[in-house]
Amino acid sequence: MWQTLVRWFHKWTSPKWFYTLSKPLSFWLGWAATLLLVTALVWGLMFAPIERLQGNSYRIIFLHVPAAFLSQAIYAAIAVMGLIGLVWRIKLSFYAAKQCIPVGISMAVLALATGAIWGKPTWGTWWEWDARLTSMLVLLLLYLGLWALHNAMERPESGDRAAAILALVGVVNLPIIKFSVEWWNTLHQPATLKITEPPPMHPMMLTPLLLSILGFFLATAAWVLIRTRLEILERERKANWAREELNQMGKVE
């Protein structure tokens, strides 16, 4: 039993197997994500009831909250994958961690942009030093640091390991950053309007929100799978199977 598990694990972490198996997986994940997102957004933007205080402008929540949630989850995932790569020397884990970074950056940018757009009608300004927006900005800076470190390293293997260490230090820091920013925010501006509503949300609003989060989650998974496949091709390009694959794609010199 244990043996089978170990063998299965090793198979899945070999880049070649991952490459083959992830193809149908990303395909179906992508379709499921599209379906969910279309449902959630049509429901949220057109059928969910109008919010009592903010009117229609609250509807951006269906983009903002999932993006903010995912950008944090992806950072944690990068740290976990980095740790796996460092401890068990699994290349695949590094590849996936690296390709999570641009996805995470997009999510953080989306969260900040929707936050700003939401801020205009709500606070009357594009940018407010709100606790959540501020920690999202710091998170974006952490992401950009990871990406910059990857790009600065000459050997990609060193970049993988260095970024893993940075991500681990960052993930320890992240809760402290969030806590301190929230504390700082209450110190400087008590009683501003909080960006998300208190938990008892109308089910007609909550359901599309949850669907949207799930859709974002699946879309992220599909996107990371696709990017990781490309990273594998790039990094394993001297392996025979990768050459054949590139040949078929007509991408070989």
């Binding site: 710091v138 800076l141 952490l142 950009l144 910059a148 960052g170 950053i177």
Partner: peptide, 10 residues
């Protein structure tokens, strides 16, 4: 500087 400053917010 880019790597370290964000960690230093708290």
């Amino acid at each position: 500087t880019v790597l370290i400053m964000p960690m230093f917010v708290p």
